[in-house]
């Protein structure tokens, strides 16, 4: 399976993402600059964390206008897995691929630490490697991860089982319903504030994030390779 790691000016988790895929997962991966106009050669799209365009105006606001984002939208429409982490999640909401928005953390602080996440939905192509309601340890590092949406959107997220991850203990940022990650209705676009790519090896403090990437590959293999 071949992944694209989208790189915007100001992305800073692209190397971690690349490492997680190449060295820990053992799959193909390439960096793709934000100016590129073709993602057709890739099977999965990863939007890393960081501060694209310096977070100017709003997090993710400028990134959504870049050339590559119209390709990301096409990939999402084609049903390819699209994963946005941290700033990548903010970009996906700005681009309208996921509902809601990420606001300034309620306590106004940049929160950088390990958190306990609860896998609320383990039936997505990103989470089959986890048990339902399993609690995993994943780091967060964000100042604007306070998920917000209106009541109507929240009701539809709950009804369609689109809330994938919640903060298991007290939420660090004031998110509605302690939401840490959501998926689109179709089930192929996941956005989350915590960083699974930073939890892929015991040497770096934990490996609970690896199952997320393994789930994506497993699903892809079952769909694309089993016919061989």
């Amino acid at each position: 399976m071949k992944f694209a790691v989208i790189v915007f000016p100001g992305s800073n988790c692209d190397l971690d993402m690349y490492h997680a895929i190449k060295d820990e997962l053992g799959e193909e991966v390439e960096y793709v600059w934000h100016d590129e106009k073709d993602l057709s050669g890739f099977d999965g799209i990863l939007l890393p964390g960081g501060f694209s365009y310096g977070d100017y105006l709003r997090c993710g606001a400028m990134a959504k206008q870049s050339n590559v984002m119209s390709e990301v939208v096409k990939a999402a429409e084609a049903g390819k897995p699209v994963l946005g982490i941290c700033n990548g999640f903010q970009v996906l909401t700005e681009a309208g691929l996921l509902p809601g928005a990420l606001l300034r953390n309620k306590n106004l602080k940049f929160m950088c630490r390990n958190v306990e996440l609860k896998v609320v939905n383990n039936e997505t192509q990103f989470t089959t490697g986890y048990e339902k309601d399993e609690v995993i340890q994943i780091p967060i590092a964000h100042g604007e991860g306070n998920y917000y949406c209106d009541d109507e959107t929240l009701a539809s997220l709950i009804e369609n089982n689109q809330i994938v991850f919640k903060y298991a203990s007290e939420g660090p940022n004031g998110s509605i319903e302690d939401i840490a990650g959501i998926i689109n209705e179709k089930g192929n676009v996941l956005g989350m504030m915590p960083h699974p790519e930073r939890a892929v090896h015991e040497l770096i403090g934990g490996s609970d994030g690896l199952a997320l990437f393994k789930s994506i590959v497993k699903q892809w293999r079952e769909t694309h390779v089993s016919h061989a």
Partner: peptide
Amino acid sequence: KLLTNTVI
């Protein structure tokens, strides 16, 4: 399209 996010 850009200057504001009408969700928030």
